[in-house]
Amino acid sequence: MDKRIASLADAVSDIPDGAAVMIGGFGGSGAPIELIHALIDRYLATGSPARLTVINNNAGNGHVGIAAMIEQGMVAKMVCSFPRSADPRVFTEKYLAGEIALELVPQGTLAERIRAGGAGIPAFYTPTSFGTDLAEGKPVAEFEGRSYVQERWLKADVALIKAETGDHLGNLTYRMAARNFAPIMAMAAAHTVAQVSHIVEPGGIDPEAVVTPGIFVDAVVSVPNPAQEEDLNRANAIHPQVSA
């Protein structure tokens, strides 16, 4: 078995129109910029995939990564907890113009819905949001004298994540807080693609150090020296670059 994919373009070639796509990262840390930009390049060349639902903690920053997906018109809906950033203009303008839908989910509920999706748990109860506007229409129940809100699992067709080291079998490790949503998104998507800074042979990762076991990963693509979204934004980068 070998889950390596030769190119970024190949890694994102099967994502269909209307897909639900989980994208790893919290702000810039862990954002799989190269996979996202490969997906944008495919959309600009072919018109597909369009009308995506994107699941991420945020809704993009500046004009790269998820913000660039939104700017190019590929995204019909965002599922996130905090659609604000240092430069949230791309999402904000489309949202206020009614051109993109938003499902706002408390951050811990978002994480647990994704985890539940990956773990085969269709619904669960959480104290989060009880009595607030974000619990409207949701079933509530009392357990041991306290009230809880029922939330449902969240699954996706595809997850695009960034990891530090991956082996041919898809076992992954991460770099510091870039881990954030990636391990649970890898579980919750039908097809998970990981871009990794280092590819090693099976055995090259200490089994004790594996964070995401390969069973949750379908494709691994090598991206040495990946771009950091924060650095791109500090350099006022735009994707795709407009040639003069």
Binding site: L96, V105, L134
Partner: peptide, 8 residues
């Protein structure tokens, strides 16, 4: 634009 993060 509403935004809640982890507050709740």
């Amino acid at each position: 634009v509403p935004a809640v993060g982890g507050a709740m």
